[in-house]
């Protein structure tokens, strides 16, 4: 049984308000059957230093990435990972984490690839919970294992691959990395070459909207009006047209994917998880440098 949606007034403005819960809502529902609270952080040890009581840990790298192929885990592994955490297909999963929910949004996106229906983000993430002085514990829960079905991943709806992006040139692309990464400026010191990519810059035509612009100072999402002002008025993105977001490895762009898909209600949003570590290393793909989107090559 899905838990009720959070009816916080701020959320009601968003296109899919049921995708967010507030710290108040979570505190009220903690421990209810059918709810799994899942912490997902950049730092693999942060959960161990203290987490929301009852929350289980899900690591983006060791749990959700395939250890050999650059891809997400397969259906069997995914079923094991969720089942071990007491999560079944019907469970309401609330994700939260550090860094404005950066990694929690990434985990949410991966859960969505596997079609997990009811997955939500805690607005403000770990920082908001802590800032409000709410309880943390180092006790690691041992939920009874659940049976999670082996469900094939659907990479068609919300995931984009390099060849698709090449075909998509001229369409709405959003680069969510920082300004120096977008422009192609080097940010590392001499003698310390950038290990991630051989070339700097961005995909021609991509708009630059650093992902964190979607968040307030306290890590909560900006209001719908603020988000529309950034993505629609300032950048001219059309919610009726498809859009592909990318960053370096697809994590920051999962955050923007969440904003466009669930908060602003864009109809067709994909995350290009190959992102700059693929594009910036690929042979003979077009690249633009500088602060402007640049010329889209004729095909």
């Amino acid at each position: 049984m899905a838990l009720p949606a959070d009816t916080t007034a701020k959320f009601a403005e968003y296109a899919h308000s049921e995708r967010l819960v507030s710290t108040d809502w979570l505190a009220e529902h903690l421990g209810e059957p059918g709810l799994a609270v899942v912490e997902s952080n950049e730092d693999v040890l942060l959960y161990s230093t203290g987490h929301i009581p009852g929350a289980v840990h899900l690591d983006w790298h060791t749990d959700l990435n395939d250890p050999v192929t650059r891809d997400y885990v397969d259906a069997e592994s995914f079923a094991t990972v969720l089942g071990e955490r007491g999560i079944s297909r019907e469970t309401t999963v609330v994700l939260y984490g550090d860094k404005n929910n950066w990694w929690a949004a990434y985990a949410l996106w991966v859960l969505t690839l596997f079609g997990h229906e009811d997955v939500r983000l805690l607005d403000g993430g770990r920082a908001a919970w802590i800032a409000e002085g709410r309880e943390l514990t180092t006790d690691v829960p041992t939920p009874a294992a659940a049976t999670y079905p082996v469900v094939a991943r659907d990479d068609g709806e919300i995931r984009a691959f390099k060849d698709q992006v090449l075909e998509f040139l001229g369409g709405q692309l959003v680069d969510v990395r920082s300004a120096p990464e977008y422009s192609g400026e080097r940010t590392t010191m001499p003698d310390y070459p950038e290990e991630g990519a051989l070339r700097g810059g961005h995909i021609p035509g991509a708009q630059s909207v650093p992902w964190a612009r979607a968040a307030n100072e306290d890590g909560t999402f900006r209001s719908r009006a603020d988000l529309e002002a950034i993505y629609q008025q300032e950048k001219g993105l059309d919610p009726a047209e498809p859009v592909i977001a990318y960053c370096r490895i697809g994590e920051r762009s999962s955050h923007t994917w969440f904003v466009l898909q669930h908060l602003l209600g864009f109809g067709d949003v994909k995350n290009y998880d190959g992102s700059w570590t693929e594009w910036g290393n690929a042979v003979r793909v077009p690249i633009a440098t500088g602060a402007e989107p640049g010329e889209v090559p004729q095909r």
Binding site: D43, V44, L45, L46, S48, T49, D98
Partner: peptide, 9 residues
């Protein structure tokens, strides 16, 4: 930072 225990480790 304490918020980055892996790096701190």
């Amino acid at each position: 930072p304490r918020e980055s225990p892996t790096t701190r480790g």
